[in-house]
Design a protein around this nucleic acid. Structure first.
Lengths: 155, 155
DNA sequence: CAAAGATTCTGCGGTAATCGCAGAATTAAC
DNA sequence: GTTAATTCTGCGATTACCGCAGAATCTTTG
């Protein structure tokens, strides 16, 4: 995923079960996956590789930003003129931006940013507001992360 | 992380480098990590285990929701009365909610939800608005995910 | 429906990675 | 400066991973 490669790949029950296992523990062995889904190790390995190649799934380390030197996080609601997608793609290029989504509602884009401190955040906000096509923005500084999970299953 | 365990663990350069390697590829071998950071395999393995145990980092599969049967995603801005944290913790218990953050700004909470379709989303919104302490809410339906990444490094 | 083609699977040998542990080295505490 | 705690290296024993050949299954096509 990451850039969502379209072309919705069809996922059978086995693929979904494999995803769920890796959502629990990204470093589980192919052998363990194979046993859990009732396939040979080689088949399970091929399945995982295919899911990674097709970008349906990625296996990565996710960190708590506050513990690795990023004190300030925020969501920025952005109103645009012209094509929101274009602005979104340009925002996506900013390194402090880790999440950009085009939405329907009183904001055209929602942008999550990860900063080291307040001056850094201020600078990023300035960068966003100076972007061509950005009409206005509203910043929501994060006070506390109550929940964050990645195992929403597959169904 | 996930519930962020406080107690900021001190991260030295080696730990940060290890995190960065795993942000690139969550299934990289301990041997490869060891070689990259200049430690023995056993030491690298102990480091990774410690990072996982201390909940500074987790290694998980992350999927593109649209490809695994969840067509409708949305961010819900919530205004509360009373303690926003309390409401946030209650929202965190809703299974369709994968992300809850307490913020400063015109919303007290931002809540991301993952749904199968529009009726499902409607039901979740109803659930949110009925929660004690929720005064009002505004929903931003996702039209396109422009960017999503997890390798914001460590510094 | 039958044959051809494409996928996906199993089985297996060779290689590489993982695990657990004992002891050395380093770091922190007193 | 001594003790204690942590972290590291080295190394067998075990397990997992990789690549491939051939069988099985699912798809396409005439």
């Amino acid at each position: 995923m990451g850039r969502m490669s379209e072309g919705s790949v069809r996922l059978d029950a086995t693929a979904k079960r494999i995803i769920e296992l890796l959502q629990e523990d990204g470093r589980i062995s192919y052998a363990a996956i194979a046993k859990a889904v009732g396939l040979s190790e080689a088949a399970a390995r091929a399945r995982v590789q295919k899911l990674l190649d097709s970008e349906v799934m990625q296996v990565v380390a996710v960190t708590d930003p506050t513990q690795v030197g990023f004190t300030r996080q925020a969501m920025i609601g952005v109103r645009t003129e012209g094509d929101p997608m274009k602005v979104g793609d340009r925002l996506a290029e900013v390194s402090e931006v880790d999440y950009v989504v085009t939405t329907a509602g009183s904001f055209d884009l929602l942008v999550e940013v990860v900063c080291e401190d307040d001056p850094h955040l201020l600078d990023v906000i300035r960068q966003v507001r100076e972007l061509e096509g950005v009409v206005s923005s509203e910043t929501f500084v994060y006070l506390k992360l109550n929940k964050q999970h990645y195992n929403w299953g597959t169904r």
